[in-house]
Design a protein around this nucleic acid. Structure first.
Lengths: 230, 230
DNA sequence: GGATTCAATAACGCATGCATTGTTTGCCGC
DNA sequence: GCGGCAAACAATGCATGCGTTATTGAATCC
């Protein structure tokens, strides 16, 4: 986990540009390239073992995804997340995810289609019992990803995942600063049941409250731990 | 308005890539490059008077904005908007914009800051009286843009504008197929007043109903006028 | 001593060339 | 005449080179 800043060897994408995008994105989310890191095109080209052209294309994608900023003579800078950013992100999620829950509930999918959500809930409960925060976070992510991906609106899903990614590091960082997320786990299960029952209004409402609570907790944590953060 | 497919002369961006992005985006939204249009990198390079490199970078941006798709040996294709796309887009807007209205209402900005919205409302009412649909659409866009830009959440604003752009052509196309948007105009005014009064709940609720009605009207129109559209 | 200007340098944006790879055309067998 | 195969072609993805321009550092002036 403390490898000396090296490009992880992954299943290569078909193109060097796609490969660069995936690998840089992974390195940013894993904190292998911590916030504030500045890298020039040429440095990235060496790091990734390719020329500047595909690196540039990857940088453009990462910039549009809100993970880095590009400044002409200073290369690419991994963006930190401030308390303001977290507020924005949670406002967006508080808006989009309850909508996704409502849409999903109203889709009346066959019960089998909701299996990923059931599994995520179970994994969350198991992780809570084992007090394994990392496993809990993974299950939480699986739940939220599954929810937006199943809701039947690809644009909504892509947007939710985009801000979710932006806040990934902050969630990982605060994970050990929070009490065990017992309430949150129970809320997921309740939302799950409302969706399975096809109760769109309940699913939306419960998710809304879930996000409001979770968001304010996280933002409070971040503000307490100092600004200009992550 | 029927120029023979030529790059419009605009205030040039600092870089050729940025210039290409702006110009292509404008040409797509203005229907100078109609949906389904396929253009190879080399063709775009000639059209825009630059080499393939900056064109490629512009294409990547446009693809991430959901305006075109890139297929390796077939170049860039201007994406059409189907009824399904419109449903997705309006679901996203129905989620994000009421949130923006609520956020804006709760910001209690000085009254002067809401001037853009007041002006947009007035322009909409004037256009309605003059039965000028094009002017009405412009004012409508100004209102919605102003709303999300003033709400204090840049991410939300960017996301809303992205899907707004995606549906621009469809709105323009259906403009003359709809009755004069009298109800919609009145709703904007009412939302405006709720925002000015700082009543977040009312603003959100009214906007929610506004979008639901407008969305279903538009989708009905599109479905009636045949699929695989725009 | 500190600020300013000019020159050297470095990074970038773009153009271009090449190898790769998918597509298409033309030919052959049926 | 039609389907299949092979060769030519074309578009792309990437590497590379160059001109432009911002930045840095050094020398000079106040």
């Amino acid at each position: 986990m403390q490898a000396p800043l090296e490009a992880p060897a992954r299943p290569r994408a078909a193109t060097a540009a796609g490969d660069a995008h995936q690998r840089l994105r992974a390195m940013i989310l894993d904190d292998a390239l911590p916030p504030g890191t500045q890298l020039l095109e040429a440095e990235l080209a060496v790091l990734l073992g390719m020329s500047r052209t595909p690196v540039r294309e990857a940088m453009i994608r990462l910039e549009q995804e809100g993970l880095v900023s590009i400044t002409p003579r200073h290369g690419m800078r991994v963006l930190p997340i401030s308390a303001t950013d977290m507020r924005e992100i949670y406002e967006v999620l508080t808006s989009l995810e309850p909508t996704a829950a409502e849409l999903l509930a109203r889709r009346s999918l066959p019960a089998a289609a909701l299996a990923p959500l059931h599994q995520a809930c179970a994994a969350m409960e198991a992780a809570l019992a084992a007090e394994d925060r990392r496993a809990w976070a993974a299950a939480d992510e699986a739940f939220h990803r599954g929810l937006v991906e199943l809701c039947g609106n690809g644009r909504l899903a892509a947007m939710a995942m985009q801000v979710w990614d932006q806040s990934h590091r902050a969630r990982m960082f605060t994970l050990n600063m929070r009490p065990l997320p017992a309430a949150s786990t129970a809320e997921h299960r309740a939302i799950m049941q409302a969706i399975a029952a096809g109760d769109g209004d309940a699913a939306r409402e419960m998710f809304h409250r879930h996000r409001r609570r979770g968001g304010s907790e996280l933002i409070a944590l971040i503000e307490r731990s100092g600004l200009a953060w992550v």
